[in-house]
Amino acid sequence: MTDTIKLSQARRGDRGVIVQVGGHCHHKEHEVELERRLLELGFVEGAEVELLHEGLFGRDPIALKVDDMRVALRRREAASLIIRRVAA
């Protein structure tokens, strides 16, 4: 199983590798700022991610394992990350 999805579409237990950061927002200045923040948090191309937990209301926020770190994101922020899913 190897397909490409937005990280915001992932479900609990999904694993993958980041293949693209950015390119989601319609407002250029917001897109650049979000991409910078995501990169600072370790969301870089090639990083391994796993969705660990989803919030109770609207499945938001999501808790992720990024390489060896744990990070929480809103799904709208996660929509800026494209991952290639891999089998668990």
Rank of each mutant, 00 (worst) to 15 (best):
H30F: 09
E35L: 10
D68T: 10
E35T: 12
R15V: 03
G55W: 04
L51V: 08
G23N: 02
R11G: 01
G23H: 03
R12G: 00
Q9S: 13
A78V: 10
K28S: 15
I82C: 04
M69D: 15
S8C: 12
E50Q: 15
R70N: 10
L34P: 04
K65I: 03
R84P: 01
G42M: 00
E31M: 08
E35G: 06
R36N: 04
V44S: 14
A79P: 03
V21Y: 09
G46E: 02
D68K: 15
A78I: 09
R11I: 06
S8F: 04
G23D: 10
A63C: 04
V66Q: 01
V21F: 07
G23F: 10
E29G: 03
I82M: 14
I82S: 11
V32E: 14
V21G: 06
H53K: 14
H27K: 10
H53G: 04
R74D: 14
V71K: 02
V32D: 10
M69E: 15
L51D: 01
L7A: 09
D68W: 10
R74M: 12
H26V: 09
G13A: 03
E77M: 11
V21H: 06
R70G: 04
R37P: 00
I83W: 03
F57A: 08
E50S: 08
E33F: 14
Q9M: 10
E77Y: 12
I62L: 07
G16K: 04
G22N: 07
L73E: 00
S80G: 08
I62E: 01
G23Y: 07
V32N: 11
G22Y: 05
R36A: 05
R36P: 00
L56E: 15
R84L: 11
Q9L: 12
E33A: 15
A63I: 07
E45W: 11
L51A: 04
R59P: 05
E54N: 04
G13H: 07
R37H: 07
A10L: 04
I83F: 06
Q9N: 10
G42D: 02
A10F: 05
I83Y: 01
R75Q: 07
S8N: 14
G22P: 06
L52S: 00
E40T: 06
I62K: 07
R36L: 05
G22V: 01
L51H: 02
G55A: 08
R84T: 03
E54C: 02
G58K: 10
R36Q: 06
L56G: 13
H27V: 13
